[in-house]
């Protein structure tokens, strides 16, 4: 049995596994920041406790949930339920392992793009399990709604990730980042970038892609989640959003490239900016109801992103 992860020749150093804790800490800070931003935006929109009150609301909310007693339901499948609720956070953590922070990465996998994709598919299973485990009608409907969304967004998302990989001629995340010297992929692959961002919102069950946990199904998949379970589930959603934003940086926004600041700082700055946009997006849009979005995914997004791939491939062949 040899070392399972062969190094690639990208300008990336793999750091010791212990640094994973630092990566988790960064992810945690991003989660808190995103929650605070969302709280502030919600407070501003609702005219509630004011922007400052909104900023601290996530902490009060977390404290409330930690004290809350767990709700139990009749004949719940607890094992699957807990796996579903806690899994989102784990999945997000596994996603960021392949994202290089400037020149350092934890896991320099030669198929990092596929790894990210495999992790985002995990969310299908996890949200459905969360909905299933509680053994309650609304919860189950929410779980199924997520799969319905998944069928609509997943293929466009996959083909959006293909575009940068074609040009970089590599599935290694560091190599993709290095391939966009001078011109970010976001600039000349706008369709792929936008579809990717939609995909991030979707696998984070966020904003317009939140019908799985929507008010119209009384909270959907998370209807019966309470206490710490709910806190972990919500943190997992923010973590997925942050991980998706972080992954977009090497894929579409030039990685650590930028003037003055070192690479790692640029990665963080770009991640935070993108995360802010994603958090804000929720304020702007009503839900994409799954029964309507499915057709949009297959009839509009998929052909659009396939066309984008074709254009990108032609350009790549023409340049070489």
């Amino acid at each position: 049995m040899a070392d399972p992860m062969p190094m690639t020749d990208a300008p990336i150093t793999t750091v010791a596994p212990g640094w994973a804790i630092a990566a988790l800490a960064i992810l945690g800070v991003l989660v808190v920041a995103a929650a605070m931003l969302d709280g502030a935006l919600a407070a501003r929109a609702g005219g509630g406790p004011g922007t400052v009150g909104g900023l601290v609301r996530p902490f009060g909310e977390a404290a409330r949930l930690m004290r809350q007693r767990r709700r139990t339901t009749v004949e719940a499948d607890r094992l699957l339920w807990r796996i579903g609720g806690a899994g989102l956070l784990v999945t997000a953590a596994l996603m960021v392992t392949v994202v290089p922070l400037g020149e350092w990465t934890i896991f320099d996998l030669d198929v990092g793009v596929m790894w990210f994709n495999a992790m985002d598919v995990m969310v299908w299973a996890l949200v459905w399990l969360t909905g299933w485990g509680a053994n309650s009608a609304h919860s189950l409907v929410g779980g199924y709604r997520f799969l319905a969304h998944g069928l609509g967004y997943e293929l466009p998302l996959m083909f959006a990730l293909v575009a940068p990989a074609i040009v970089a001629e590599s599935l290694n995340v560091g190599a993709v980042a290095a391939a966009q010297e001078g011109l970010w992929f976001a600039v000349w692959m706008p369709v792929a970038f936008l579809v990717y961002l939609l995909g991030v919102a979707a696998f984070s069950v966020w904003g317009p892609f939140a019908p799985a946990i929507g008010t119209d199904v009384a909270g959907g998949a998370r209807a019966e989640l309470s206490g710490v379970d709910r806190l972990v589930f919500e943190a997992g959603r923010y973590a997925l959003l942050a991980a998706g934003a972080a992954f977009a940086v090497p894929m579409f926004l030039g990685g650590g490239a930028g003037p003055l600041l070192p690479g790692w700082a640029w990665v963080l700055v770009k991640t935070v900016a993108l995360l802010a946009v994603l958090v804000w997006l929720r304020r702007r849009l009503p839900a994409f109801r799954p029964d309507k979005f499915m057709e949009v995914g297959w009839m509009l997004l998929l052909p659009a992103v396939l066309l984008q791939d074709l254009v990108v491939a032609v350009v790549a062949v023409w340049r070489s």
Binding site: L109, V111, M114, N117, V121, W124, E154
Partner: peptide, 13 residues
Amino acid sequence: NYVGVVTILMMVM
């Protein structure tokens, strides 16, 4: 690596 990750992806889906 590719085959392994694709196996995980496809099978979970």
